[in-house]
Design a protein around this nucleic acid. Structure first.
Lengths: 174, 174
DNA sequence: GTCTATACCCGGATAGAC
DNA sequence: GTCTATCCGGGTATAGAC
């Protein structure tokens, strides 16, 4: 067996990569992916997309794998837990729709680049000092803060910096 | 002006109440509301629904208002923060789709029964000792934990009781 | 191989007849 | 109060032209 006989994910053709790039753009700009509008964007008809990728879930999986690695790089650059929290929030606010694709709903793990999810998670685990329960609590706090902010759940005058500081200080004792 | 001249929400007719009850059932059982299947459930055609309620968002808003009050009653019964956390998680696990309707995405506040959202939030604020930053951090933690659990984001062998305990202990110092 | 046209099924919603 | 007919928007499968 050759090394790239891996089933997940199938290696993408150059044309498929172009489609995925356009889909990422569409997601960022429109907030969702529509196969029909994605085809418009590329100047082709919707069914043509299916010659390059098996369907919408495959397009999403490719975006997810890429974005996990992108996010991981930013998280790895953080030196302190406070920086990690800030990096996490910044990524979510800069790419809200991509954030939701990565962290909301069930993850199609079978379709993802192996290791991509784990690499994004690693900095959080490290910051928790190796305690998995604490790491999960910190992750849940950050995820909850980001989603509540993206979903406009906090009052307009809420001091979110202070809430982040309060949470991180309590959870990690910084 | 009479007391019930309130614009939000419009008082529902008995028939509309029946429709909303059926929609709640559908949401719990199927995980989503479809106006077509909702009509099937009631033995009528989809367009007939629109004679009683203006559309799907109105159906959802009625369910949300009811469910906020339902959840509030359960949260108010909690005596300690540990109990409140347990009550929060239990509600989410018993009614996962309703939970998402209540707490995920933008809330159609204009359509809701006034005060319903605030009443569900009050016990959390009280448990935080009146500190709004801390209350937001606790809420974010609980929301994140619940969503990550519902979305199957934790490993199967994760000890979620321990993660809840770790988070609540840190955040409130119990 | 790459595209197109067509069509199917699902969804929410509206107009107008009974 | 309910109906039928209809529109628009999705994802996607198939057939066939180039």
């Amino acid at each position: 067996m050759s090394p790239d006989s891996a089933v997940n994910p199938p290696t993408l053709s150059p044309r498929a990569r172009e489609i995925v790039a356009a889909a990422r753009e569409q997601l960022e700009q429109e907030g969702e992916i529509s196969m029909r509008r994605l085809a418009d964007r590329l100047g082709i008809k919707a069914p043509s997309l299916y010659k390059h990728l098996p369907g919408k879930p495959a397009v999403e999986a490719a975006i997810i794998s890429d974005a996990f690695l992108e996010a991981a790089e930013r998280f790895e650059a953080a030196q302190t837990l406070r920086e990690l929290g800030a990096a996490y929030r910044a990524f979510a606010l800069e790419h809200p729709h991509v954030y939701r694709l990565l962290f909301q709903g069930r993850l199609p793990r079978e379709r993802l680049t192996p290791g991509a999810e784990a690499r994004a998670a690693a900095p959080v685990i490290a910051a928790a000092g190796g305690d998995p329960d604490r790491a999960r609590a910190i992750f849940a706090f950050a995820h909850g803060m980001v989603l509540l902010e993206l979903d406009d759940r906090f009052p307009d005058d809420a001091d979110l910096e202070a809430a982040w500081a309060a949470g991180l200080q309590s959870l990690v004792g910084v």
